[in-house]
Computed example of a mutant assay.
Amino acid sequence: MHVVFTKGPGTSYDIAVHRDTGAALAPRNGPGGHPYLPHDLVHFLVEAEAGIELGVYGRLATGANGMFWPADPTERARANRRRKTKRTRPTPEASADMARSEELAGIAVPVWEVRRCHARELPAYVTAGAIPPVVDRIVARFDEYADRWHALPVGGSLTVTW
């Protein structure tokens, strides 16, 4: 699966997912918010580096639509009907993986910001002694992509592979 992040003005961006399994997905806007690390790229890198299989991207790779809609209008209508009539809840394992992704992202971004001198100190909820070892690997992945993303012009893209 390939995920394409396309830079918009300011900190906005679009995401397109190209996969072999499941319906073709329509691109969507990302929440923005960071000039070096788009929120959804953070989660992609966290989930890939930490081996989180049932987070957003692992589930997309298996054919689930997640936070995306099918590109085909007929399939989109079908998916919309299924969502309305069949409220599927994530499994306990998927919920745990999503929570782990959020937890690691919430730790790794401020650690990266402090190490790169974009912030002076860690927030109170991140204590130096409680940082999981995987965070160092995640931060190293952030370093691989952050400057490339920041240097992109509006309309430029960065592709990552799951």
Rank of each mutant, 00 (worst) to 15 (best):
H2G: 13
G8A: 12
P9E: 13
G10W: 01
H18I: 05
A26H: 07
N29Q: 14
G32M: 03
G32S: 08
G33N: 10
H39F: 02
D40E: 05
L41H: 03
V42D: 03
V42K: 04
H43G: 11
H43T: 06
F44I: 07
E49L: 12
G51V: 01
E53S: 09
E53I: 01
Y57V: 07
R59G: 14
G63M: 05
F68T: 05
F68Y: 05
W69S: 07
W69Y: 14
P70R: 02
P70A: 05
A71N: 06
R78T: 06
R82H: 08
K84A: 10
K86P: 07
R89A: 10
P92N: 07
P92M: 11
E93C: 10
E93Y: 05
A94F: 08
A94Y: 09
S95Q: 12
S95D: 09
A96D: 09
M98S: 06
M98A: 06
A99Y: 04
R100G: 09
R100K: 14
S101G: 10
E102Y: 01
E102N: 12
A105F: 01
A108I: 03
A108G: 07
V109R: 08
P110H: 06
P110R: 06
V111I: 02
W112G: 04
E113L: 03
V114R: 08
R116E: 03
C117F: 08
A119N: 13
R120G: 15
E121P: 13
L122D: 12
V126W: 10
G129M: 02
G129W: 00
A130P: 09
A130I: 00
A130Q: 10
I131S: 03
I131F: 05
P133T: 04
V134D: 14
D136C: 09
R137P: 10
V139T: 01
R141N: 09
R141C: 04
E144Q: 12
D147W: 03
W149C: 10
W149H: 01
P153I: 00
P153K: 05
V154T: 07
G155A: 11
S157W: 10
S157F: 13
T161Q: 03
W162H: 11
